[in-house]
Design a protein around this nucleic acid. Sequence first.
DNA 1: AATGAATGAGAGTTCATTCAT
DNA 2: AATGAATGAACTCTCATTCAT
Lengths: 200, 200, 200, 200
Amino acid sequence: MGVREARKLARRQAIESAGLALFLSEGYAGCSVEKIASAVGIARGTFYLYYPDKRALFELFCERMYGPLVASLEGSAARLKAAGSSEEQRLMYLQMSFALAGCLEQARPVMLLHFREKWSAGPAGEVVGEWMSRIEAIAVSILEDARERKLVRELDAVTVSLAIVGAAERLIWAWLEGDERLDPDKATLEVANVFFSGIA
Amino acid sequence: MGVREARKLARRQAIESAGLALFLSEGYAGCSVEKIASAVGIARGTFYLYYPDKRALFELFCERMYGPLVASLEGSAARLKAAGSSEEQRLMYLQMSFALAGCLEQARPVMLLHFREKWSAGPAGEVVGEWMSRIEAIAVSILEDARERKLVRELDAVTVSLAIVGAAERLIWAWLEGDERLDPDKATLEVANVFFSGIA
Amino acid sequence: MGVREARKLARRQAIESAGLALFLSEGYAGCSVEKIASAVGIARGTFYLYYPDKRALFELFCERMYGPLVASLEGSAARLKAAGSSEEQRLMYLQMSFALAGCLEQARPVMLLHFREKWSAGPAGEVVGEWMSRIEAIAVSILEDARERKLVRELDAVTVSLAIVGAAERLIWAWLEGDERLDPDKATLEVANVFFSGIA
Amino acid sequence: MGVREARKLARRQAIESAGLALFLSEGYAGCSVEKIASAVGIARGTFYLYYPDKRALFELFCERMYGPLVASLEGSAARLKAAGSSEEQRLMYLQMSFALAGCLEQARPVMLLHFREKWSAGPAGEVVGEWMSRIEAIAVSILEDARERKLVRELDAVTVSLAIVGAAERLIWAWLEGDERLDPDKATLEVANVFFSGIA
DNA sequence: AATGAATGAGAGTTCATTCAT
DNA sequence: AATGAATGAACTCTCATTCAT
């Protein structure tokens, strides 16, 4: 790799690092291109040599955050479809929980973006929304499959899938915020148990 | 009521109606006072005769949306604390579910605000955050009480409370969006059952 | 006087009192008609039943503040023109000083208006400027007369008059502000002496 | 100097020139950024590339106007303290008069700002007030020193200092306004004489 | 490749004044 | 006589993006 490419790469990384930090601390809308550029130590115009616009930088972070999650979920979905017994299914739910926990651990530094921008009105909200549709569709397919195989009782797959995703999101948020009341390892099991066996 | 009061009231309602619609469609930050005013057909300055600033209009919506919810939750919490048997407790969870469903039905036109602004950075995010702290505190107290009374098995009250609130939020959102896959009546029962008995 | 006239008068006084206080504390430009009206406890529109506009209220205060001053100065000017000896002239300067001091004492509560608005850009500045031209013209005429009668040495009447007016303004300001370093009685004499005999 | 620096400098000067003219003619508060920008022929936002806000432009003018004046006064104060005889002191007062006259001649195009904003309520008034405190403190120290050395008769230093500053201000104003009745050269001497020897 | 000057629409908010009630 | 709702231009300041250098 030539000197030029190396410098370009380094600068790209610097922009991404500063951009992420600022998106997280100030929100997508609250963080101007000028802020990012001056944090990196480049001119405003230079930013546009690396990314076509502010939105593209945000999309990049989303790709990195949701991409592996979606891949992992799709893998889990496939394996769950292959599962035989209720016991095996139960095990795989735990496996999936841990696989997802791994993804989340990886994505942790970027994860708060999801929450900050999920409901926002501008471009950021749109981007997040598209990824979430994909994730929820997978969750629904997993549960529908389980129900068809009578691995779980008769239930409304869409309702319960959304409930699971919602619950997961809320817990992830608490974990991200370092909520002291929450022990991550116990919480993963706890939630898997709640959804599998209820609170009774 | 005089002519002026009537007009004032009508205009106030028009502003609220347009303001809500715009807050919902464009988000708090994305919706300027100018947009609201011109949607109502008044001058920008006239808006400020009815509300001291944009934030005040948002707070009004929050009061209407969260106020009855909090009141209902607090009532349910009190009644649950008085419950004796596990069976009675279970019944009261259902009661609470339906009471909340009633609140939500009332608040439905405003409810999406919660989701739009929950994570936002500005004034709107602050206001919603304050209300949510209140709600989650009540949820935790409800569950802690149940656990102490051994009405539910030993569990982590905070984790599970957050999970419940998160699940509820997600389902409410789907319902708000008129998600066709979701039958509101069934969903209420379904969720109560899931949390009480699990999905197994 | 009928009940109506009495009420009208009382209201007029209330407006003036509140208006003066606000002009002084916030400046002419910084004090809205709304502020004055609500300080009095009347509606914004009612203000305009008593005064054609904000400027008119300011003009009223100026009339009261500068009117007696101008009258007193014109009287002093006339008496000084009738003075015979340098000694008599000197006495009359002292008399004038005390006469002016009397006017100022009367006008004290309004006097700060002069300083606040003298240089301001809007309507208030114009009004004050017109009064000051009148005052300075009288000062010049007084000094020119004295010079012609050889009661004072050959000097530039305009320069010295302006100097005297300027010095007086500055001292009045200090006095208004309750400058502790300043003894009003001593100061009056001091200035008269300085201008008559110099500082040597 | 590159083309861009040259242009930037030229524009900066254009902004300052237009800004000063407008501050003088309309007052700080009466002159909007829009007015300045359109006088220069630039967009409103461009103004903010050159100065962080409107106040900063005003502070710049004050620095240029008062800075040399304060420096000159402090120099004169030091020299006066070293003066021996009353005769020498008198000479130095004249010197100081001329030194100040030099400063004022330099500052002439900006000087009227002082008068326009001295009493104003907003940011401009604050800035001017701070500079004036410095100037008056120096004047007091000069006169106190002279009195202690018995170079002038026993007098109230504060009163007389303020009188001198006030007189000077008024004359400067007349000079600025090009008052035809006033001959600048004669006036400087005249005032020095008045304060030193009185008008008798 | 990199710069940063320039744009101009758009934000929230204030206010003197008018006029229908 | 009194009201206060309504206006709409004015204010300062921000920002994503473009483009000549």
